[in-house]
């Protein structure tokens, strides 16, 4: 199967194809869809405001409050996104990490997809073809959330009683098990790679634990949203030190 790849497909210059102008145009299209949606919603809200017992001034206040509250979390996402630029290129990061998905789900999807091609994300075998297959798979998976939203929202709205009456214990345990199962599997799989991979996982995990601990003990709740960005930077820094000090296997 892998013999079908052309010589071009074996190039590791990801950014040459990941930053193609067409991809930029499509990514900006997704941003445009969100902007149009917000404008239509705001106009509709202003029109129906009196019926909902909310004044124009209160609508404005709500908009401003939401915007200000989003600054911190947005910048935290920015930091994580920049760290992922070399892996996926700007357009894919903007759409997949910045918008629809999250750093966690999308990089997990990409890692799983690369694994089916016998490659490691960002490794010497992370070729253009592996990138494209990973990008395709994570976009299809992201489409799963959007399709489910498009299908389920009208159903939930018509008569949500049946879906909401699903056993609460089932709704509490199965999603948690699916999430933790998926990420535990991916995390433990990293432990089977090089010593520097193991080091990166552990340093990043410990950094996050410290962030969460400090956020709980002090009033620095911002550490909660910045935890992922900080852990990635610290984890990568540890990896860089280990890599340059010769812990890396000679490639």
């Amino acid at each position: 199967m892998e013999t079908a790849l052309t010589p071009e497909g074996l190039s590791t210059d990801i950014l040459a194809i990941a930053n193609m102008p067409v991809l930029w145009v499509l990514a900006l299209g997704v941003f445009a869809a969100i902007i149009v949606q917000s404008l239509v919603y705001m106009k509709a809200a202003r029109k129906a405001g009196p019926a909902a017992d909310i004044s124009e001034a209160e609508l404005k206040t709500s908009f401003r409050a939401g915007a200000i509250a989003a600054i911190g979390p947005s910048l935290a996402v920015v930091l994580v996104s920049i760290a992922l630029l070399t892996l996926f290129g700007t357009p894919a990061v903007l759409v997949r990490i910045g918008l629809v998905g999250s750093a966690a789900t999308e990089s997990a999807s990409a890692s799983l997809a690369a694994g089916t091609m016998g490659a490691t994300l960002g490794g010497a075998d992370y070729t253009q073809a592996v990138f494209v297959v990973a990008f395709m798979a994570m976009s299809m998976s992201g489409a799963g959330w959007m399709l489910a939203t498009l299908i389920l929202t009208p159903i939930l709205r018509r008569g949500d009683t049946k879906l909401r009456r699903v056993n609460p214990a089932l709704m509490a345990i199965v999603p948690a098990a699916a999430l933790i199962g998926a990420f535990a599997s991916l995390g433990i799989a990293e432990l089977g790679k090089t010593p520097i991979h193991i080091l990166s996982v552990i340093v990043s995990a410990v950094t996050m634990a410290v962030c969460i601990f400090l956020a709980g003990r002090t009033r620095a709740t911002w550490l909660r949203e910045w935890g992922l960005g900080i852990s990635i930077i610290v984890g990568l820094f540890a990896a860089y030190l280990a890599h340059t000090s010769g812990m890396a296997p000679v490639a």
């Binding site: 992922l84 892996l87 990409a110 890692s111 960002g122 991916l186 996050m208 935890g227 984890g235 990896a239």
Partner: peptide
């Protein structure tokens, strides 16, 4: 280096 180890650096924290 960042490209090589970004995934382990994400997954540890996310977990």
């Amino acid at each position: 280096v960042a490209r090589l180890y970004i995934f382990p650096a994400i997954i540890g924290a996310v977990l």
